[in-house]
Nucleic acid binder design. Structure first.
Length: 154
DNA sequence: GCCAACGTTGGC
DNA sequence: GCCAACGTTGGC
């Protein structure tokens, strides 16, 4: 069954434009160092799952485009690179700790700001709107997905 | 296994 | 830059 996700990216690192301009429109979702988020990528994501591409830690946080999961899980090589800020001394190629997927950007949309998401009663249970939520990858229900797609097309 | 200290996230 | 909230670490 197809699932839906919201994935945060800092536009200063990888924006929706960067992702669309990437080779074959796919970007490796590198740098996730949170077990819950990793587990979503490793255990639950399927190629073709829908992705809301969210810009975080920026002047205008919000949903900036649509994407899809483009690969199965595989090790994030930055964990083995001592020069990377994502280096993890406890990870080895034989026993990788951090897995990621590739994400294919499909389209840039009109920005749907965080404040507008908060204004929707039907999105009150959207995980990124919950108090204190910091997860960079969160599941989205089909109902929430439909609601957001509708808002994006307004 | 508890829990204090510390680090990180991310909106504002 | 602030700070609330949460995750991780490590001593015990």
């Amino acid at each position: 069954m197809k699932h839906y996700w919201l994935m945060k990216s800092e536009p200063g690192e990888v924006s929706i434009d960067d992702a669309l301009n990437a080779r074959q429109q796919t970007v490796p979702w590198t740098g996730v160092r949170n077990y819950q988020a990793r587990n979503f990528m490793r255990d639950a994501m399927q190629v073709g799952d829908g992705v809301l591409f969210y810009h975080s830690s920026c002047a205008e946080p919000g949903i900036a485009g649509l994407a899809e999961v483009a690969s199965g899980p595989y090790p994030d090589d930055t964990q083995f690179d001592a020069k990377s800020k994502y280096f993890d001394a406890k990870a080895t190629p034989e026993s990788p700790r951090w897995m990621m997927v590739d994400v294919r950007a499909l389209q840039k949309t009109q920005l749907l700001p965080l404040a507008e998401l908060r204004a929707q009663a039907s999105l009150e249970d959207l995980l990124i709107l919950k108090r204190g939520n910091r997860l960079s990858i969160t599941p989205v229900t089909p109902e929430q997905w439909r609601c957001i797609i509708k808002l994006l097309h307004k």
